[in-house]
Amino acid sequence: MTLQLGIHLGERFTLDETMAAADLAERYGFDSLWVAEGRLTRDAISIMALLADRTETVRIGSGVVNNKSRNAALMAVSFKTLDEIAPGRIICGIGAWWEPLASKVGTPLKKPVTAMREYVDVLQRFFRNEEVTVDGEFVQMDGVRFDRMYAENVAVDIPIYAGAVGPRMLELSGEIMDGVYLDFLLPVSYVDFAKRQLDKGIAKRTDGVTGVDITQAIACAVDDEDPRRAIDACKNFLTMYLMQQPHIAEHAGVAPEVVEQIQQVAGWPATPEDIERAMQFVSDEAVHAVCAAGSTADVVAKLEEYHAAGVRVTVLNPLGANKLGTIEAVARALAPSTGAASAAASAAPQSAAA
């Protein structure tokens, strides 16, 4: 299995940078682009449509949308529309959202695994062009389906990937989904845990599927002139997430007392100044455990660790002042394995330093 690359595109990218990243992905033969929709910043589906129209080969995934803020029928139609723009290249990445944001907008998390099972079942039935009637605890549909009046309604091939972290959601992913989009800030050792949980779900399948695709976002930063800057960029990111989503600490291997120290500085939402003050409590070791940071060689070595553990696509979540430089540095270093040797050979050298 060859290491493949993707790019995680969130609010840290301007729209111009987002389009430039897509161009790099096409040039270097990347597997996929994943558009974030976590906090109340940007809608993922609008950006996916722009990327789908701009590109020709790279796959476009949501990384991830949630199963609470859009009706399941509307979600199915939205992804079917994206598939019209880029046939066969769209991935529906979906998660359960997170607290406290879900409660702040009036949709608190309740029985997330049950809710996900119901929601994904409806999506899959729509994608198979079936009429859908369900009376679930979280999802209700009454005789609905794709409803084009002036063209034939047909099935669409849109794989569904779960943004899963916990053991029960991972097991469900193995049972009913096509793949998983593992979160950033999770150590290499977590991949083994995830695979065990996925295998439990795969054992329950009745459709003949014997495995699911594993992709993972990796927080990363390259700076060959000053690797310290790259490490600090990732440390800033890890600190921010420990402030706003402290539940990640368990899987990231961060001690509870460190989280308490950080939370004493600020919770969510945190200001950039709060994050800077709290960074002192996060060690370099913690950063290197869950991020790929430093020189190009350092970052590539870390990506290869994740790949060796079972991640097919390592999705770059580039941080720091030169995000596009990080993408290109990694792409050039891995060009032979990603099938982009000719692109690397024709591109002029460029520093990824901030």
Rank of each mutant, 00 (worst) to 15 (best):
L170C: 02
G136M: 13
Q140N: 11
D178C: 09
D142G: 01
Y161P: 09
E131T: 12
P167H: 02
R148Y: 09
L186G: 05
S189V: 15
F138C: 02
L170M: 08
G136E: 06
F138P: 02
M169I: 12
V144Y: 03
L186A: 04
V154W: 00
Y161A: 03
E171M: 10
M177R: 07
V156C: 02
E131C: 09
Y190L: 04
Q124P: 06
V144R: 15
I158N: 04
R145E: 05
F193C: 10
Y181E: 12
T133W: 13
V156S: 04
D135P: 02
K111H: 14
E130W: 09
Y150R: 01
A164P: 10
Y161K: 03
D192P: 02
Y181I: 13
S173I: 09
R125L: 13
F126L: 11
V165C: 13
G179N: 05
E171S: 09
E131A: 11
A102E: 14
F146N: 10
A162R: 04
R117A: 14
F193T: 15
V156W: 00
V144E: 02
V139W: 09
A162W: 04
K110E: 14
A162T: 02
N153Q: 01
S103H: 07
E99F: 08
I158V: 05
E137W: 07
P100K: 15
Q140A: 13
N153H: 03
D192Q: 12
M177S: 01
V113Y: 05
P108A: 15
V105F: 15
Y119T: 11
E171V: 10
V144S: 01
Y190E: 05
S173H: 07
E131F: 00
M169N: 07
E130D: 06
D192N: 15
L101I: 14
S173L: 11
F184C: 11
P187F: 00
L182M: 10
P100N: 08
V154S: 07
R145H: 09
M116T: 12
T114D: 06
F126C: 06
Y150C: 00
D142M: 05
R148C: 07
A162N: 14
L101G: 05
E152T: 13
E99T: 08
E137P: 03
Q140F: 08
A164R: 06
M149G: 08
L185C: 10
D178Y: 07
R145Q: 09
E152S: 12
S173A: 14
L185N: 15
F146P: 08
R148F: 10
T133E: 09
P167R: 12
N153F: 01
S189Q: 13
F127L: 01
D178L: 03
Y181S: 03
P187E: 07
E171P: 01
G143P: 12
A151I: 09
G166Y: 08
Q124G: 06
